[in-house]
């Protein structure tokens, strides 16, 4: 990691980062670890570019100095992690008003996202984008993660992270395809309806455990097809469709006259 840190300021760094991002979208989990940009390492130039991006794309709602307005949160002190989460998942910039901002293809590339994050981080202290180590599932303990997840997360996101409903059309999204970094950032910053789980509440190690647990769920179920991981309702639906469907078919065949 030291070698990587040393090259961070290389002029080819953005290219490398871009490549990394492309590879990540290709589905290589190991590389899902994010653009390792954090507030303290961002240089002045990044902040300047970020400011321009912000004023062009975000200031309409969040205000020219990110001070927010009625119904729009101030971004002072939200930190780089919040910006990276909102922008890299495409939730921001928001395209239309709805019960909540929804995930869509990201509007900015990894470099621009990092610049935006650097700018917002420069406005006030806030949580930084986690390092690759912090979100590495292989270093987490899935058993501890399962326990933390059950108590703190499952009531909204469902036992295996398949998502669930909130009030008035809002919902807790499925975590089946969320990157490890975004999961970490969401816990840390509490986007939208989600409460904040700061490091005193769920420690950084526990956050990594949660990520380890969630990554395990992507292996599917030991029992076979997961049927969406939605629990008894989908199981009930399938017993009517598959079980009773096949057997009524068989019964019709048994009752029909042979030719």
């Amino acid at each position: 990691m030291k070698a990587l840190a040393a090259r961070r300021h290389h002029r080819l760094a953005p290219v490398v980062l871009l490549l990394l991002a492309l590879l990540a979208t290709g589905g290589v989990y190991a590389l899902l670890a994010p653009s390792p940009a954090s507030a303290d390492s961002a240089n002045v130039q990044d902040i300047e570019t970020g400011k321009k991006l912000f004023q062009a794309n975000c200031a309409t709602c969040h205000g020219i100095n990110a001070e927010g307005s009625d119904g729009v949160p101030s971004l002072v002190g939200v930190g780089a992690a919040a910006v990276d989460f909102q922008v890299s998942t495409g939730r921001m910039p928001m395209q239309m008003n709805g019960p909540q901002a929804i995930e869509k293809p990201a509007q900015f590339d990894a470099e621009q996202t990092a610049q935006l994050a650097a700018y917002v981080a420069s406005l006030g202290d806030g949580p930084a984008v986690p390092t690759a180590d912090q979100v590495d599932p292989s270093q987490g303990d899935p058993a501890s993660g399962a326990a933390i997840f059950r108590t703190n997360c499952a009531m909204c996101h469902n036992a295996v992270g398949a998502g669930g409903a909130l009030s008035e059309g809002k919902f807790a999204p499925s975590l089946m395809h969320t990157s490890a970094t975004n999961i970490y950032q969401a816990m840390l910053t509490g986007p939208q309806s989600m409460p904040v789980f700061n490091d005193a509440n769920v420690t950084p190690e526990e956050k990594r455990d949660v990520i380890a647990y969630l990554m395990e769920q992507r292996e599917g179920s030991a029992g076979g097809l997961t049927l969406g991981g939605l629990g008894p309702v989908s199981e009930g639906l399938w017993v009517w469709v598959v079980g009773l469907g096949l057997l009524v078919g068989a019964a019709v065949w048994i009752g029909a006259k042979s030719s």
Partner: peptide, 24 residues
Amino acid sequence: MAINNVWNYGPFDPSPVSAGAQPD
């Protein structure tokens, strides 16, 4: 087809609950 994967719900504890809390 997987059904009732109880290890995902965890051992009973009165504090947690999961979204999609429904009976059969």
